[in-house]
Structure formats: structure tokens, C-alpha cells
């Protein structure tokens, strides 16, 4: 181990990404698909007792309410009434977001799933069909204050006009209502957002989504985030993390090269893509930060069978919880 640490400055072979069954992308999409499947399942006759509702409000096993916090706020201020069930359901999600951060956006949101798949399709078309070797360009930066302002606009509008506007026009709800209840007119709006993806990637998530803005404020101090290994950070400025980040977070410039302990950017939705492309195991998506005296990452790929790492502590491998 000592010799390994002594050898550290020598350039080492790049780490390959994990296999699909160990990648965050797989589990992230799995949770989103399971959530969507539960919504469809709940809409079938006789199963509404187990799971019912849509993204603005669901009920699990006829007991536990889960409510979109923005829906609960809008409805409460619009009707000037304290809706117990809705606010309880919103409280559950808010507590979860405070502890875990804005994981809804990256892990559950059905629109996020669609945009994520769209992103993969774009990457596939670019690499396999057009044969270009470079990654997709980094999304153009946009001012993400717009979405916080939109959040305010919706609350203010609900107070005066007494209409929970976002629950009506939210593309997340429109998408789910189209899939679950067959109200297909709203798909036009979803289609506009997907087309916008090809011009201005993740414009909706980065700059417009009021629900995401709420979660990013609430989940600012969430524990589940991309942790930076202080030992490895800033040694090789390859910028793969920032190039890959679907939300356009300048991970390398603003976080790893500046000696931050974690990526705390409000746009980070905990998707974990950066941890999978980092060739040196600098980043991990985990509840637990690296200790200040973290050991170096192993020089070979610990996901492969021919790894000779021995008893070297593997910070990357500990990140599965």
C-alpha cells in the first residue's frame, strides 16, 4: 500500500466505467420506471387500494399519502385551507429531500426519465450512427434563477387567482396524465420540451422547472451527493465529469479543482453520471464524504475480475449504499 501511494504521481491506466448492473444510470432508470409502472398499475381496476394517483398526489397501500410539495402549497394557499392529508404527504417528501437532497429529479421524475433516455439516444446516434468520436457538447449555460422566480410566480398566482396553475400545466403531470389517464392533449407540451432538448439540452430542468427549484432549495444540505476524494482531486484535469454532466454543472472547474469536498451545485440532481466517467475515481455518489486522509483510488479497475488490488481500501467500491 505504501509503495502504491509512493507511486502515485505516475500516470496510471484509466479506469473503465462500471458494468451496467453496477452503474448508477441503471438503478436510476430502474427506480423511475418502477415508479411509472406503479402509477400504471394503480390505474388498473382493483389495484387502486395498493397504489394510486399521479405525480401530484399518490397514496400507497391506501394509508401513506405522498403529495407533490408544490401541489400541496399551491392548493393550500389557493383555497386558504389546511389540507391535512396533502400537507402530510408533502411533509414526507420534504423531510426525505432535506435528508437526501433533490433525488426526485434524477431518480423518480417521469419527465426526467424521458429526457434522460432522449439524451442517451442522442449520444447513441452521435457515436454509432454519425460516427463522431467527441462527446456531446456541454449544454450552454443558462440563468437558473428563472426557475426560482417561476416557483415564486406560481405561489403568488395561486394566492391571488386561486388556481394551482402548475398542477394543470406541469409537463410532468401532463406526461403522467397521458400515460395513466389517457389525456393526450398535454403531450404536445412534453413534445416541445423534448424537441428543445436537441437545441438546448435540459433547458427545462436547468432553468424552468419550479418543482426542481423547490427541491434544490430544500435539498441543499442533503447528504446524498457527489463526494470528492481530496487525495485524487485536481490531479488530472480531464474534464470528463463536466462534459458528461447532463445538467451542465462545471464540476471540474468549480469543485474538484477548487478543493471542495462535494458537488453542492443547486442544479446537481444526483444522477451519478460523473462518477462513472471519472477515470481516477475522484467522485462517488454516496451519503458519506471521503475522509480527509482518503487513500488513493486503485490503479486498476476494481470492477474487473483481473484486479490485483489486494487489500487496498477501495473508496469507489464503498459507494453502493
Amino acid at each position: 500500500m505504501n509503495s502504491r501511494a509512493a507511486n502515485h504521481p505516475r500516470p496510471r491506466p484509466l479506469r473503465k466505467g462500471p458494468p451496467w448492473y453496477r452503474s448508477w444510470t441503471f438503478y436510476r432508470r430502474l427506480t423511475a420506471v418502477v415508479f411509472l409502472a406503479l402509477l400504471v398499475f394503480g390505474s388498473m381496476n382493483g389495484f387502486e387500494r395498493f397504489f394510486r394517483g399521479s405525480t401530484s398526489g399518490t397514496k400507497i397501500l391506501d394509508v401513506v399519502p405522498i403529495t407533490d410539495p408544490l401541489a400541496a402549497i399551491e392548493s393550500a394557499v389557493a383555497s386558504r385551507e389546511f389540507h391535512q392529508t396533502a400537507l402530510l404527504g408533502a411533509g414526507i417528501l420534504v423531510v426525505f429531500a432535506v435528508v437526501m437532497g433533490p433525488v426526485f429529479c434524477g431518480w423518480v421524475c417521469p419527465l426526467g426519465l424521458v429526457l434522460d433516455l432522449n439524451h442517451s439516444i442522442r449520444r447513441f446516434v452521435r457515436r454509432r450512427i454519425l460516427g463522431k468520436r467527441k462527446e456531446l457538447p456541454v449544454p450552454k449555460p443558462v440563468s437558473s434563477e428563472i426557475k426560482y422566480a417561476l416557483f415564486g410566480v406560481l405561489v403568488g398566482f395561486a394566492v391571488v387567482a386561486q388556481i394551482p396553475l402548475f398542477q394543470i400545466v406541469s409537463p410532468i403531470n401532463l406526461l403522467v396524465r397521458a400515460i395513466v389517464f389517457g389525456s393526450t392533449l398535454g403531450l404536445a407540451f412534453v413534445a416541445v420540451i423534448v424537441v428543445m432538448e436537441w437545441i438546448w439540452p435540459r433547458l427545462w430542468c436547468r432553468a424552468l422547472c419550479p418543482l426542481g427549484s423547490f427541491y434544490s432549495i430544500v435539498g441543499r444540505l442533503g447528504l446524498f451527493r457527489v463526494q470528492i476524494n481530496p487525495y485524487e482531486a485536481g490531479k488530472v484535469p480531464c474534464k470528463r465529469c463536466a462534459t458528461r454532466c447532463p445538467m451542465g454543472v462545471p464540476i471540474m472547474d468549480d469543485y474538484t479543482m477548487k478543493g471542495e469536498r462535494a458537488v453542492t451545485h443547486p442544479n446537481c440532481n444526483r444522477c451519478g453520471e460523473c462518477t462513472e466517467v471519472c477515470p481516477r475515481g475522484v467522485l462517488k455518489l454516496s451519503l458519506f464524504p471521503y475522509p480527509r486522509d482518503a487513500a488513493p483510488a486503485p490503479s486498476c479497475n476494481p470492477h474487473e475480475g483481473d484486479c490485483d488490488c489486494g487489500d487496498v481500501p477501495l473508496p469507489v467500491m464503498q459507494s453502493t449504499t
Partner: peptide, 30 residues
Amino acid sequence: AACIRCGQCVQACPYDVLHLADLDEGLAAG
């Protein structure tokens, strides 16, 4: 003002009576 457009009533109805309004109903959608 109070309806959050979640559609739980539609699913809970044992007789499948209820429908959700689509966007052509304006702000009553959902």
C-alpha cells in the same frame, strides 16, 4: 382552487364513472 389534479378519485371510483378533464377544458384540466 383545492383540487391538485392527482386523479386519485378517478382511480378510487369502484364503478369507473369518473374521467379526468383534458387540456381543452382550460384551467379545469385534470
